[in-house]
Design a protein around this nucleic acid. Structure first.
Lengths: 252, 252
DNA sequence: CGGCGGCTTGAAGGACGTCAAGATTAGTGG
DNA sequence: CCACTAATCTTGACGTCCTTCAAGCCGCCG
């Protein structure tokens, strides 16, 4: 990755371990406002930092949790890319989502008390692990923590709905690329120039398309001058047009 | 509805206002264990019952909340059927879900602080309205309430994922019918004999199919002896086979 | 070099959507 | 009670988007 970056003269386009120090990461993490001291008394802060456990590095293909594992913790991605997926009764894979640094996984497991999917590292991954019982107990004492958890949970409900609709391959792919860009931007990286952390087949599974269709549509986008794709490096050349294509999927 | 029920000699197949008294409803509601006294001190219970507001009746077509309305409350359905939907940029309707008595709507609005969809009564509807700020404040003091909210939120994340997959029309319809039956059963009604509270077109929108396809597949199911459909009355004749058809969608 | 996985490209087939017309029911007012 | 209209549902014929199948390409690594 580093080689490609240097060769093409790209600015850093992907959050990686070492791109920022601990504190800098925490400020862009979904739990940031919870973890970073903000006027709480010392006892509460000690509790908080006790329940966070840094894990990693995990290698590509490593499993973070598996379907039916007993639910104990939620995780914030600190570096790398994680995919969540289910394997249905016929052995077909369904990719539920990709998770970038600063994003949280495992929330869907609260209700059944079991993880409803597998979480798998797509490259070298570092995580923050939060014991959920400890977090819930802390939330009872700190309304901000409770509020943040409610928000994270609520946001996940809407995310799932985004790709549930009945859209064409082009609409879905345009929305996927734009959304990925926005999520990188929210973490301080370029919204128009980034690296896909996953193979085409995973993108296809996620968008309910055949890998061949992903290939064809990307080629078509490139021929129309909408994007530039080289391997997994992507540049969005005409975000406005992509936006128009995806307008029926993305909210704003 | 009552006329048809009597004419066909069906047992009561649909929860309606008057099918049970207040307390009986509350015992099957998603908030039941929160609302029904269970060892809390009197002050807490008074708070709780203050923040619940009974509303209704609403008529078919009435709106409970609209997209972009400021988020203030979540609702439990007490009687009737509610659909949630979004209208995309091209004016196409997407039905996100149908909500039966005992189920909760509005949770996806916490994060953006606005409702992300419309909620519309499909027939005569009664609701319990919970002020969310009051509920969150109560949750800080009552861990059980907090836990229940976490569970409800978490469950909604998984629900959205169920129909997001890449399945055939038959698989989706089979899963839809079975799931509806289970939800009725969870509220004390028959799991195999119930009334569809919505038109075919709404089912189609929900399952990402054309209304014509819903019609055709239902007819096919009937010809195969899997179901009996008469108007909106449905009887699942071979739940086992339906289960097999839908096995890649439904968990258990 | 040679093998392997990921990606691309082409051709053929299928599942579902679209269009159009007819059937059945519910609702309304005479 | 009946006629009339509108809405919902059904059924058929045809078209389309995407998948499937098959083959070839490219970069990577032993």
């Amino acid at each position: 990755m580093t080689a490609i970056r240097q060769a093409t003269g790209l600015a850093p386009t992907h959050p990686g371990h070492g791109d920022g120090d601990e504190l800098q990461f925490c400020s862009t993490c979904a739990f940031g406002e919870v973890c970073v001291p903000s006027g709480y008394d010392k006892a509460a802060l000690r509790d908080l930092h006790c329940l966070v456990q840094h894990t990693g590095p995990l290698r590509a293909g490593d499993t973070i949790f598996r379907t039916s594992d007993r639910f104990e913790s939620i995780y914030a991605v600190r570096a790398g890319t994680v995919k969540t997926r289910v394997i249905d009764a016929q052995g077909r894979e369904q990719v539920l989502g990709f998770h970038l640094p600063g994003e949280v996984i495992g929330l869907a497991a609260i209700h059944p008390a079991k993880y409803p999917c597998d979480a798998i590292a797509l490259d070298t991954v570092y995580l923050c692990r939060f014991s959920f019982p400890a977090l819930a107990s802390l939330a009872s004492r700190m309304p901000d923590v409770q509020q943040q958890l409610f928000r994270l949970l609520s946001a996940d409900i809407s995310k799932a709905a985004v790709l549930a609709g009945d859209y064409t391959a082009g609409e879905r792919l345009a929305a996927f690329l734009l959304l990925l860009g926005r999520r990188f931007a929210a973490r301080g990286f370029s919204a128009t120039r980034f690296r896909l952390g996953m193979p085409r087949s995973d993108i296809a599974c996620h968008l309910r398309l055949a890998p061949e269709t992903v290939s064809r549509v990307l080629r078509q986008f490139q021929d129309q001058g909408l994007v530039r794709v080289e391997e997994r490096e992507v540049e969005l050349l005409q975000p406005g047009l992509l936006r128009e294509l995806s307008c029926c999927i993305l909210p704003d």
